[in-house]
Design a protein around this nucleic acid. Sequence first.
DNA 1: ACCTGAACACCGTTCAAGT
DNA 2: ACCTGAACACCGTTCAAGT
Lengths: 235, 235
Amino acid sequence: MEPRTIKLGQRVTVTTRRRKPEPARLSADRIVEVAIGYDAVTMRSVARELGTGPASLYAHVSGRAELDQLVTGKVCAQWRIPDPDPDHWDDQLRTAMTDLLALYRAHPGVARCAMGMIPTEEGVLAVSEKLLAILVAGGVPPQHCAWFVDVASLYVGSVAVEEDIWRERAAGQDVESVTEEAVVAAVHDVFAGLPADRFPLLTAMADTMTTGDADERFAFGVDLLVSGLVALSRR
Amino acid sequence: MEPRTIKLGQRVTVTTRRRKPEPARLSADRIVEVAIGYDAVTMRSVARELGTGPASLYAHVSGRAELDQLVTGKVCAQWRIPDPDPDHWDDQLRTAMTDLLALYRAHPGVARCAMGMIPTEEGVLAVSEKLLAILVAGGVPPQHCAWFVDVASLYVGSVAVEEDIWRERAAGQDVESVTEEAVVAAVHDVFAGLPADRFPLLTAMADTMTTGDADERFAFGVDLLVSGLVALSRR
DNA sequence: ACCTGAACACCGTTCAAGT
DNA sequence: ACCTGAACACCGTTCAAGT
């Protein structure tokens, strides 16, 4: 496994981008397309990328809130969820959640848009429907099905948001010190260096605390949720 | 249960606050104190509340990142976690997580500060230590103990962040339409009103999808995680 | 050492004006 | 109907200047 660099999105600060002075020919679709293509989803950066000022976007999109909706809708539409297979519903959930994380990773900044969103967009509703189908086919109690969709989405989203935050923090830092490994090593040293009398477990478990890369840790969380669902259903 | 209003933090926009022209007498402690006392933790709002400009804070705090650390540290220090009781480790975890959510709710905006933070602050480390103690006493495998602390913190934090987002969205809206009940009712109608052929489950399960208040939903997530931990340990 | 005002580079949104 | 520049109210941070 190669050392994944957290670097990215190095804030170009080129204020004089403005490609050509041709009239912009905008549309909601173009705006959303650009928004999911660049790391930081902001009105101004999207407008800049389209060669206009932010005010121009408001003819096609009511504001940041609607852009968030459209962006997550478009990304969710790329989320391939299989038809339910009652014998493997739990594995289907696991891979579905992993796929969503991969999608968020491919579109930095989108997880933040999705956070706290009321699902009304087509694409978002479609994936909820398909997740529900897998859960229902698995024989999970209806109330658990319903709530699990929310909890699972929230968990995947928050992992992605955390990674986005790390990425942003890494941008504008010296590149060598922000590999995932370097950060983990630093945290390890913090734990190991604590006073052992007041932090007996953290010092003793410094290795264990810092074991595993982002994927392993995420997989553990997914395992917890799915295993928990199985356990609750059997009660 | 009374209808909880999501209203709060109504952005006063009083730009001319500036209490007295006395020299400020600042300190990191005063700054943090003020920061956890008001909903939106921003350099400028904290400075305003202290009667100065934002630049003054930089003599005591290196920037937003350190303020985030100090604020979460201070809030975590208020988090009372019991000494481990091996017979009730799972219930201890459940109530600990619920207590943290209550703490975040009492200090809007703090959950956002905590998100993606590398734990180095005293207060944060102390609670990790105590959570670990409960898990270890419960006989949970060390690797699961370590990872669970992270997943649990992330889950509680992300629920709190979502609630903060709703609160902010509610501010600057007409008050009657943003009670938790009103929002849930609106979401219910979205689900129920979908085309039944393409969304058979969402339409049929509209009631189930919108059952439960914030506390019940949170408790379900906590149950998933803790039950999952029990199930994984037994494998 | 500590505080300050002014400035810089951001952010979302509005609004009068253009076509 | 669509696009625009300028403005407003924010944000974090820096920096020269004051005490």
